[in-house]
Design a protein around this nucleic acid. Sequence first.
DNA 1: GTTCTAGAAC
DNA 2: GTTCTAGAAC
Length: 193
Amino acid sequence: MSKRSNENATETESKSKHAKHWSLGLLESMKDPKSIVKQTKNVVVIRDKYPKAKVHYLMIPTDSINSIYKLNSEHVSLLEEFNELFEEIKSEHSNINLIAGFHAVPSMQRMHMHVISNDMISPCLKTKVHWNSFTTKFFIPYKDILSELKESGSVKKISPELHKSLMATPLQCNQCSFKPKNMPQLKEHLLTH
DNA sequence: GTTCTAGAAC
DNA sequence: GTTCTAGAAC
């Protein structure tokens, strides 16, 4: 079958004017019982649709907060609830190293905190951008966001130049000094940890 | 965010 | 010739 006819076959759902933009996907997942891991009045925890490690959850506020850059001092208590849920999740995964943080430049709408294991073993981890999103300063630890919010009442954006340079960071294992030549070599190496 | 694929890198 | 990466997607 040609590529063109493939596109036509799914045109109704993928190309119509009413199709939802991909960046709104988290709002759909938040409502999907199959994605939900746990839920409180203020927060929903879902499984990442394309996990980049053995454990990869997203913690999302029920309130319509578009990103960390919309946070103000009144959201400190929300972030403190995030930490309580993070501690709860850690206690449910006793032998796994979990880290919590935010992407400096998120692609998906609705503020979301990544809770991810440091093994980084997953078929969905494919590109240098994936890797650098979790292993460079592009990944802002939860505690950094909380203290910046407490100290200045908001979270400052990074410059496009810094964004570009972080994404271009040479590959470096997150658990040792190994510097892989390419992604396949990195993925092979991760299996040895 | 993912998919696809041209052309760079090997 | 095959593997791998990076940029377009209307």
